[in-house]
């Protein structure tokens, strides 16, 4: 695959992270909060950058953790259970949980230039390509 950014297999992130083992007697809400989901992403590559857009509903800039270690970019979003006060869950079609996903990035990405913007539960990551990785056009001079 001729890509600078590869998503790892989703199932690799579908595992327990520390607090999955719930103690008995705890509320369902607390248990579901420790679930980890794989966020849905769009990845688009242009000549000078790669843009990654991820759906992270319930995550804000404070609860989002983005890290790059060697060639692995990791996203981790923590979601606070948002149960309306004084109400009880009566019917559920989705579970609330945290988000985690990692991606393999190539050496062509300029690590220092990575930018992240979070808005309305959507993360927009811009990964600029390093100068040497960009397609460079060499003008051909004609010699008369």
């Amino acid at each position: 695959m001729n890509s600078n950014l590869n998503a790892t297999a989703p199932h690799s992130t579908n595992r327990c992270h520390g607090h999955c083992e719930t103690r008995k007697g705890h509320a369902t809400e607390e248990r579901s909060a420790s679930k980890v989901f794989v966020p849905q992403v769009d990845i688009v590559e242009s000549d000078d950058r790669i843009t990654l857009v991820a759906d992270l509903p319930g995550v804000d800039q404070e609860t989002l953790d983005i890290s790059v270690e060697k060639n692995v970019l990791s996203l981790r979003g923590t979601v606070k259970p948002n149960i309306p006060e004084g109400y009880q869950l009566a019917y559920s079609e989705f579970e609330v949980g945290n988000f985690e996903r990692s991606f393999t990035i190539s050496n062509d990405i300029d690590r220092a230039g990575i930018e992240a913007v979070m808005k309305d539960g959507v993360l927009r990551l811009t990964l600029p390509k390093a100068q040497h990785a960009m397609l460079q056009k060499i003008p051909v001079k004609t010699v008369s």
Partner: peptide, 9 residues
């Protein structure tokens, strides 16, 4: 000119 590599959303 952009190349879509992944579209899950």
């Amino acid at each position: 000119t952009a190349r879509v590599q992944r579209r899950e959303r």
